[in-house]
Amino acid sequence: MILAHRIAVASPMVQADMVEATEFPHLTIRYQVMGVPRTVINESVHIEGAVAEGVVVEKLQEALLEAQGGDEGEGTG
């Protein structure tokens, strides 16, 4: 997905990984990847399928709000 990489280039705060799901089964289990593409933002927010730029931005804001509001301290993992 090029969009995530474009967002990474646009902001020094963003890192974007493209992960080949079948090669990292522990991550597909951890992030409950049933279909692709599946986007995970900051461990907490998920996007199913390919979506428009505006939706990704909304979800990004959602992830940040969640981090502010309900930081449960998942540890360093």
Binding site: M13, V14, T39, L60, L64
Partner: peptide, 27 residues
Amino acid sequence: AQPSLADETMAVLAELDKPVHIQVFVT
């Protein structure tokens, strides 16, 4: 280094003050 994103997107990204990690799972 030209991401060609919408102005609205750039505005939101400019406000980011915490690290964001996006992982896109693909095949």
